[in-house]
Design a protein around this nucleic acid. Sequence first.
DNA 1: ATTTTCACG
DNA 2: ACGTACGTGAAAATG
Length: 897
Amino acid sequence: MDKFMLIDGNSIIYRAFFAMQQPMTTSAGLHTNAVYGFTNMLLRVLEEHKPTHVMVAFDAGKITFRHSSYEEYKGGRQKTPPELSEQFPLLKDLLTAFGISHYQLEGYEADDIIGTLSLQAEQKGCEVLVLSGDKDMLQLASEHVRIALTRKGVSEIEQYGPAEVEERYGLTPAQIIDLKGLMGDASDNIPGIPGVGEKTALKLLHQFGTVESVLENTDQLKGKMKEKIETHADDARLSKELATIFREVPFDASWDSMKYEGIQAATAVTALQKLEFKSILQRLNLSDVAAHPDATLDELNADAESHVAPMEDLKVTMLDEQHVSELEAVLNTVDVVHVESHGDNPHHAELVGVLFGTPEEYYFLTPDVLKSDAATAIRSWLADDSIPKQGHDLHRADLVLFWDDIAFAGAAFDIQIAAYLLDPTESGQSLSALASKYGLPVLSEDDSVFGKGAKYKVPEQDVLSQHLARKAATIRQLVPLQRDQLEQNEMTPLFSDLEMPLSRILADMEKQGVAVNTDELRALGKEFEQQISKLVAHIYELAGTEFNLNSPKQLGEILFDRLGLPVKKKTKTGYSTSADVLEELAPYHDVVQYILTYRQLAKLQSTYVEGLLKEIHPKSGKVHTYFRQTITATGRLSSQFPNLQNIPIRLEEGRKLRKVFVPSQQGWSMLSADYSQIELRVLAHISDDAGLKDAFVHDMDIHTKTAMDVFGVAQEQVDSNMRRSAKAVNFGIVYGISDYGLSQNLGITRKEAGDFINQYFDVFQGVRRYMDDIVDEAKQHGYVKTMLERRRYLPEIRSSNFNLRSFAERTAMNTPIQGTAADIIKLAMVHMDRALNEHGLKSRMLLQVHDELVFEVPADELEQMKTLVPQVMQDALELSVPLKADVSYGANWYEAK
DNA sequence: ATTTTCACG
DNA sequence: ACGTACGTGAAAATG
């Protein structure tokens, strides 16, 4: 017998929305929580009831036939929140992908469509199940029509037939209409009789049976109730009419179109991926879906239970020295490598083991075995640049192996880099997180296999090798999925021609390291130390007490409680003692200036002198930073252990630290080249602003030029203050300007800052247009792009929260600029690496500091490098304005300024 | 583990 | 009215 399931789409999606209040969005910022709740419920009921026909009905249009008899019908109702209304089309698309029919008809509500269909189905001899969250539906219950009402959001379902309705209310299904006629329904703005709630209504109906009968027999009632019912008799009749589901909707969908033969797996998976429903996808085996595109989910599930091997069955061979040849024999089929290591700093991390994966089998080698004579061929394979390798964080693998004297080359597809490009803000880039993101079989977190922090322990070898094999299996399955997505996003060149080659270049730079003159560094430390101890004594004396100068809390107590200085700013935990606050306090008390100087020197001492000494590698005597390629939201690199991208330069005291960074060989020089105003040049290109472009084409001083245009004066009339202001505006423009930010920076009022910005935009109209357009673009697509198609998703650009939205808007303005600048210097690095090789130069690229490249150069290459480096940098990418790079060199990084 | 401060582009 | 300039990492104190 046919079994028809009718779903009240509006009712269920509303309930799902309000039940799941935690926000849930796709990376592009579409809200999906209601669709998610709906889908989970749908899959559950389909599984449980196995219907032959399914139809989801929706309301259509704002005006229904009910409005003609009662204009205020559904009046006063809260407007559907936009976070929910944007989910209706998503749900309908998903249903289509599932192969489930949905229907709506102008002028009718979902109730009416369901009422009509349930009647027709029943007359055809079908069993009908109606799914809704609305009690009104109970009026449809009959011998062959059961009503399933959701409870607790949509997580539970309660079924009603006529018997259950009788049991619950003591009424027949038809009397449900009368019930509502008397008690009304606030949510639909159906009046009912004031003062009559469920209790009274039920009592009346048990006594009289129908609304009409109640109204005819008011003489049997007495007191207030009699009065109210008599005065609101018409309301009761109207309410009953409104509550009655119309069961003769002119329906033109065919019976066959509602047939349900299981969810089409292939289209369903695509749709679920689009919605990023990880946990739902996780339950499906994607490789099976790919193999059987025409199958339904049920068929695949049945299939999976019968013969797909569970993860436990991965075939892993642990190879000792005697059996390494087994791997040698299949090396040409190895398609995944995973290097497991322990420790955050890859230059000091311990090699735990290496896993080689072929599609058939996995092989695990301990570090000892890999380093043994027996594994020479394996090591040659690892070192062979012409053999492409796939893995997760191969950059780290390369470094870890390097310090164990094992060469690695040929990284072709790094899924960590791919994941970063696909969404640079996604923090969870662990392999396990990626597995769940893509709905692959669950992979244990490293923390749970190894333990966290001090509890880290390498497990038994069978557990270890099994875990690593699962990682390898995950990598193998991920590669084609990411490859497709990169291709779809037109990011394949960015990935293959820029980021992958760069990852090897970075590893080379890091292995090379930078030599540090430790004697000089220690001498600087001594100098700082002497100044610091004098300052501390002085400060204690002026404060009248000793305290921990490094504690903002204690310092705050001294300054504001003990010395009674005015409080300018507070943090969430107490007084702010940041430098800008202290600057303001300096006139009030002599101690403040000493504290500022102390802060400055203490920073240099702890972070740079002591910090740097700690990072000198015992094996090389150099510092080897670790450039991270998958951290920043904009595409920039970051640098760790130590951070060599924030070595002091702005103040002379700190700048001296650059003297300790020296060439690693006698007679060599440090050479540094930096882009001049790269971000503003990028802005000139992207915004196509005539004035800005003109300024760069003529290589003018951009801040002076800005001052001339904004203040409307000649070059000679620009004083240092005007130039300073113009410079601040230019910075602000790049950051995504706000009047508040500029006012803070320049110490002017917000209004003055705002006027200033307006003047700027009046002159640079192309820039204004760019800022407007890019925010619109971000709102429309949910992401912004750099010139090389690097993306950043900005889900909060559609937020109703002003702060979140404003932040996203500034980010939309800044990211294409900062990100394109990052693209450009990365391109320059790839070109530079090639140029050094092609020219057979011994010079080495050592550091990248966002707009600067640092090299060490032998004396006989100095002349050539002085022209080659800026040339390559300037030609990295062609813009509508020239790029400019300045070069300098000297005996150390300080001299190369 | 989080907060505050400060170094850089 | 809201309360920020964009992007990072490290050290120290403190919860």
